[in-house]
Design a protein around this nucleic acid. Structure first.
Lengths: 230, 230
DNA sequence: CGTCATGTTGAACCGAATCAACGTTCGTGG
DNA sequence: CCACGAACGTTGATTCGGTTCAACATGACG
């Protein structure tokens, strides 16, 4: 079993709705697991009855076509929930983008536990609704925005989501480190590596941002960036 | 108040989880409302504290940019749920594509009722999870598929979703009537009207489908269509 | 220091958008 | 009932943004 009382996401994950006794029961069902960067936790179409909470690290949700094209349909951070409760197979793969730790549950056990704990279920519902909003917002980006608008929107969203992550002490002034490379940015935005790179270079040329290292982004002119995001 | 016992979606909407007493209580909070085709029920960014169930008709969820581009991020059918429970403003507009009837609730009342009825909340959670899967699947389409793949995927999904709708008696052999025109197909697929039209014409030329009238589609060769969908 | 993965830059190409004209269908009122 | 106009849909010519293919640069790491 797992000791949830010391869990790094104890107060942010859906578990926050549970009291000491309940969390003990949930802890008995769960098990901590380390995942290395690049490793896939769940395969698309896989019937694996598994759900999980992210403790540390960043993972991606990926949908692929038969001929190998990939689209990242979600990026999950610590305290986020992974998997498909209530009996359906996972419609996407889950792969770690950085080394990560997750807290895994058997889906059937989790479903049962959730049914008996409405507060937890409500927390999960709220999270799912937020994810749905985010996904729909992303659909607008994928369907209707130009390459530069896509990149600008992406950088703004990432700067927001990453600053909630505790790593802000390391950022002098609005800079942040992306947990992924160009190919993965391209897979998020529905672009190619080359187009992504060109847009970033262009923005650097315009002085809107700096690129101190491969994965670091410093937004110099947030207003301009917002204007570019469309 | 509303009499739910005669409701056309009584057994399919989230209300199906409620017993006679409970449905009576919910009925007191709800109110039936007719919406004309083209009329907007909820505005993007609008704080209107409203949620609803669809009784009849088809509605679209739309996200727009400042300069007028539109992306349809969801299409809802009878028994589907509309709106954003739990305190957030609606991040998209909801507009009727056909004449429609919805059963409207004040969001705060609904939230409260839902919190007191875990079964209803679980039904809503399941629905939201399904919607999220659909949205993510759609993200792959928008980000990575070509125009012909988009149109093929769209027609296949619509033929499935529309055949669950009771109107199959009117379909001789796999044909169905779309509840929307070319512009709206384009807004769903992230394409222009012209490209959409050309793809349909091309498919007709190849004999994969027939277009008996503006909004009717008959899929002649489902296997070929599936192959085109990517 | 050399190798390999990752990222950048350039040139040519292509698919979808755009711009423009023309057909078709539907509703409305004469 | 037919004539008209408006909305909707199709088709063609051209343009353009993003992909593709290819070469080269950078930086991490043994």
């Amino acid at each position: 079993m797992t000791d949830c009382s010391t869990c790094v996401v104890r107060n942010r994950a859906i578990c926050a709705s549970l009291d000491a006794t309940e969390i003990l029961a949930l802890g008995k069902m769960g098990r901590k697991q380390k995942v290395r960067a690049g490793q896939t936790l769940l395969w698309e179409g896989d019937g694996a009855p598994v759900v999980a909470n992210v403790l540390t690290g960043v993972l991606k949700l990926v949908v692929s076509t038969a001929d190998g094209r990939e689209q990242i349909v979600g990026v999950v951070f610590p305290s986020d929930f992974i998997g498909r409760p209530f009996g359906k197979e996972s419609p996407y793969s889950v792969t770690a983008m950085t080394d990560a730790e997750v807290c895994i549950f058997n889906r059937n056990n989790f479903d049962e536990f959730a049914s008996a704990h409405p507060d937890l279920q409500q927390k999960l519902l709220r999270r799912t609704l937020d994810e749905l909003d985010r996904a729909r917002h992303w659909m607008m980006l994928l369907g209707r925005k130009s390459a530069s608008e896509k990149v600008a929107s992406f950088l703004l969203e990432m700067s927001e989501r990453l600053s909630g992550q505790g790593c802000d002490a390391t950022n002098p002034k609005g800079g942040f480190e992306l947990p992924f490379g160009r190919q993965q940015i391209a897979d998020i935005l529905g672009l190619t590596i080359e187009t992504t790179s060109r847009q970033l270079t262009k923005m650097r040329g315009e002085g809107v941002l700096d690129l101190p290292s491969r994965r670091e982004i410093v937004i110099n002119d947030r207003a301009a960036m917002e204007a570019m995001a469309g």
